[in-house]
Write a protein that binds this DNA or RNA. Structure first.
Lengths: 337, 337
DNA sequence: TTGAAAGCGCTAACAC
DNA sequence: GTGTTAGCGCTTTCAA
């Protein structure tokens, strides 16, 4: 079943069928009608592979994430897919699962499938990824960590805004010993959050002893371990800010195990504002970094580079704001026990 | 950059390049070496689209799910992708988001991209999906709801096993008023769970009044509403079994709002055993339906049909067991208040 | 064992 | 406005 069958059935040439399908305006309406009828009757679907082969454009974007089972990512995947469909793009999704091998494999697959661009939304390994992708003159979009190169876009997350709001919120509740559960050590996006936290604390004249910053690895397990460590401190923090929501969930979970009640005995604030945040017990106050907005920006960054005739020499930048979302995981500080 | 460039660079014909890449054993090792060298030096990647065009096989499987942001699905997506990579398959993921239009769209895209098979793991709409896919002589795999047709596989979930274990567990804790929060009304997989529940209750000589079965729509919000309804009953249940984990999470969340403590005042059991189940507060006892095993079965079902010379006239069946996983959301019944 | 050439399904240039 | 045809990058006969 191909374009020829339709042509035969509609008694036109294959070129006319092709034009009709592609809605070229010069086709005689009467012929077009015959063609659509034939398409309908025979249940014909154009072969995208063949189209790609001749046009050179696959209308596929790659989306590389760290791990779908991390609740941070599905919101992005969902939104990215949504927009992709609108623009008649397909998406090739892949998780690196924090594995170098998997990641290189992913890159190879994307290139072989002729993707028109790749969005890289991962925790770490972006440099290695770039290494493999940079010479392909492929549009790329990163979160924060892309180099200033043609065809490379960056979405800059404005951590400072939301984090400042969060610190001010905690300070106004009377908290002074505020801990920060960071991401994996050395991760740029994580370091940016720590820095923003330190700045915001300094603005409020609050101290941040070294012991008050611990790594949570951006995972539930990491949050568990981080709070275990914090709880063992001679002077336990009365509030904890986390580098992302799932480590905050881990913190709350560990607090629960230790008989420490959130928010009565401990205030917790997450980051990302994943959908789940509103459903945990207690509902988690978090700093929103809109996943759908992030996906939207990433998609449009790619699309812009696909359509741009001559690339920007230093790439393109986009900005995404963050803001505090109040729920029930924070409460006024009261001297405990 | 194509196969001709490699041929030129290695001073062989394109046929030899093709054979080398495809590891046809009759290629002279010396030539093969030259070819690989050229491939390496030029950074060549074969064009999958072109390969697909001639071979007729895309090595892409479609995976249709309801919604990535529903925590039940990522585990399946992850595992499916994992196996796909092993077998050098690509996966085209799409969410129907419970929308008929989206779903039809998804089917069209899959066909246009020449997928070699489709795994349908959705809540509902399978009949409509089938309608569109059945005449394409495409391997299909469903959970429970596929018709007995050639090229259609089914993974039969053995609900009864785990549900019986759960009911027995609750009964042994002294619970008699056990409610069931079901899935969307009319959903086959949901109805199967209700039936299994009723059977198991009957075995223990426990009654199931109509008011004790309420719909939870397989969502957190649904669980919220379901338990609101159950809590308002003159004789409140002392235990609730849920048709899936996220509605169980909704139930626990509503109980929290109402000041009902889990598990002291209310025992809760989920279904699916999603990864999150172990991290909620309190950790959720659940009936495991292994998502990775499910994905594995689905993938192999598709693969088997792709490779099978003559299809089974009535399709193929696979079985997946379920089992109770004990955590902390259940406790002995004690007369309350 | 290797190469020449046909053709996979489609688009687009060109001729009518 | 429509048809003919070359060719996208590859695999696979077929002949040498």
């Amino acid at each position: 079943m191909d374009i020829r069958d339709i042509a035969k059935h509609a008694k036109v040439s294959i070129a006319t069928v092709s034009r009709t399908i592609n809605r070229v305006p010069t086709v005689d309406p009467a012929l077009a009608k015959r063609v659509w009828k034939a398409i309908d009757e025979l249940g014909y679907y154009p072969n995208t592979q063949a189209r790609t082969l001749v046009s050179g454009k696959s209308r596929i974007f790659g989306l590389i994430i760290s791990d779908v089972t991390n609740p941070f990512f599905p919101g992005i995947v969902q939104a990215f897919e949504e927009i992709a469909i609108q623009y008649d793009y397909e998406i090739l999704l892949t998780s690196t699962v924090y594995d170098q091998q998997r990641m290189e494999n992913a890159v190879r697959r994307m290139i072989e499938r002729q993707v028109d661009g790749v969005a890289i939304v991962t925790f770490g390994m972006e440099e290695a990824l770039l290494e493999h992708l940079r010479f392909r003159k492929l549009p790329l979009v990163f979160i924060d960590v892309g180099p200033p190169l043609p065809l490379v876009s960056n979405i800059r997350i404005q951590y400072q805004i939301g984090i400042r709001q969060a610190v001010q919120h905690l300070a106004s509740l009377g908290h002074r010993r505020i801990a920060f559960v960071s991401g994996p050590p050395g991760l740029k996006s994580g370091d940016a959050r720590i820095l923003a936290f330190q700045n915001a604390m300094a603005e409020k004249n609050l101290e941040v002893p070294g012991a008050m910053i611990v790594s949570g690895h951006h995972s539930i397990e990491g949050g568990l371990a981080a709070f275990e460590q914090l709880a063992a401190l001679p002077e336990r923090p009365s509030a904890v800010m986390c580098s992302n929501d799932i480590s905050a969930i881990g913190v709350m979970r560990k607090a629960y195990e230790l008989g420490i009640q959130v928010p009565r005995d401990l205030s917790v604030i997450g980051f990302d504002d994943i959908r789940l945040a509103q459903f945990v017990i207690p509902p988690l106050t978090s700093i929103r970094m809109s996943q759908s907005e992030l996906a939207r920006l990433a998609f449009h960054a790619l699309l812009a580079d696909v359509e741009r005739a001559t690339p920007q020499p230093k790439g393109t930048e986009y900005f995404l704001t963050t803001e505090l979302v109040l729920r029930n995981s924070t409460a006024p500080f009261e001297s405990q026990t």
